[in-house]
């Protein structure tokens, strides 16, 4: 892949959600509790690539996706689109950003308005952004349905008449109707059955090639992420611990957490069984992120340095970056 200017640049993104203090907490003089969802995420997304984002629930991957779609406003840090800072844009430019960066959601049952037919959903999107003159809207809807492989008679049906996989296709059609450049897919296929998952993933890959889309594929299913992504970022407690070329990362993960995560994913091969859990302990609560390396309490290689000093994401080779003090030592071991 030749070097191109990234379409999206995220730099040092922080997002903390303060929890409401109850009266009881105030009386007890408890400190205000803060969910630290994102703690300095930096990444670049190149045009036309798929960047996979993996991590366990509560690690901040969905929060990151929602920040990029501007559903959340970051506390600190910048998001740049085509080199321009998003937060500095005026209302008109923000609408344009919203059009160019579309998001698709996990739950196929709640991401569509239950009272609107597919035609109404698509018409609204096309009208609001003036994508087509009114007389061409119905033709465009037919095209969009074709694009996501839904039958033409789907247009006048309500969401409840569709299966989960079909609803996700409608959500994809809605996103595509405004001709975006970037799609943020937040667990797009996680709620679907395996056989239907494959259909939607195939569609997404095909559309990406056809329409030259950039995709952020957020998911917890490592096999799927590996399959669709050019590059992958592994997130742990609101920071990226490893980012790099997908095949490289999956074949030889460098961060101990990436290693554990990959080992935990159940392989289809009954001969590749492991007899001990790949990792002990659980993800700490984002309410109190450990000092130093957030992973140190669960890491078999942790040293004193890991407890005090937060490792920075640094390049280990041209294919990827890793945030671990002992990355070189682990690599040579």
């Amino acid at each position: 892949m030749t070097y191109e200017a990234p379409v999206l640049e995220v730099e040092d993104l922080h997002l903390h959600f303060p929890l409401k203090r109850t009266l009881f907490d105030a009386i007890q003089r408890k400190e205000k509790r803060i969910v630290k969802a994102l703690n300095g995420v930096s990444l670049e997304v190149k045009r036309g690539e798929t960047l996979g984002i993996v991590g366990e629930s509560g690690c901040g991957k969905s929060t990151l996706a929602r920040c990029l779609a501007r559903l959340y406003e970051a506390d600190k840090g910048t998001i740049r689109y085509d080199g321009q800072e998003v937060a500095a844009k005026d209302a008109g430019a923000l609408r344009e950003y919203n059009r160019k960066v579309q998001m698709m959601f996990q739950d196929p049952y709640s991401s569509l308005n239950p009272r609107m037919t597919v035609r109404q959903v698509l018409t609204e999107a096309l009208r609001v952004h003036n994508m087509r003159p009114p007389e061409q809207i119905n033709d465009r809807i037919a095209e969009l349905l074709d694009l996501v492989r839904l039958p033409q008679d789907a247009a006048d049906k309500l969401p409840h008449e569709f299966s989960g996989g079909q609803r996700q296709r409608i959500a994809i059609a809605r996103a595509l109707s405004v001709e975006p450049e970037v799609l943020v897919a937040d667990e797009l296929v996680s709620a679907l059955d395996v056989s239907v998952q494959a259909q939607v993933v195939n569609l997404l890959l095909e559309l990406q090639d056809k329409l030259d889309l950039t995709i952020l594929f957020v998911a917890h299913d490592l096999r799927l992420v590996r399959h669709v992504s050019h590059r992958v970022a592994v997130i742990y407690l609101g920071t990226i611990v490893e980012i790099g070329d997908s095949e490289q990362l999956f074949n030889a993960p460098k961060h101990p957490y990436s290693k554990a995560l990959l080992a935990a994913a159940p392989s289809l091969d009954p001969d590749k069984r492991h007899t001990r859990p790949s990792i002990s302990g659980e993800l700490p609560s984002p309410l109190n992120v450990p000092k130093g390396c957030a992973f140190h309490a669960r890491c078999p290689h942790a040293s004193g340095r890991c407890q005090s000093e937060t490792p920075r994401l640094r390049a280990l080779d041209e294919l990827g970056n890793v945030a671990c003090h002992h990355a070189e030592a682990l690599l040579s071991a």
């Binding site: 779609a69 501007r70 919203n98 059009r99 739950d107 991401s111 239950p114 952004h129 959500a171």
Partner: peptide
């Protein structure tokens, strides 16, 4: 999510 979807649609 349809409310969020509306916001994402601008």
């Amino acid at each position: 999510d349809y409310a969020s979807a509306g916001r994402v649609m601008g």
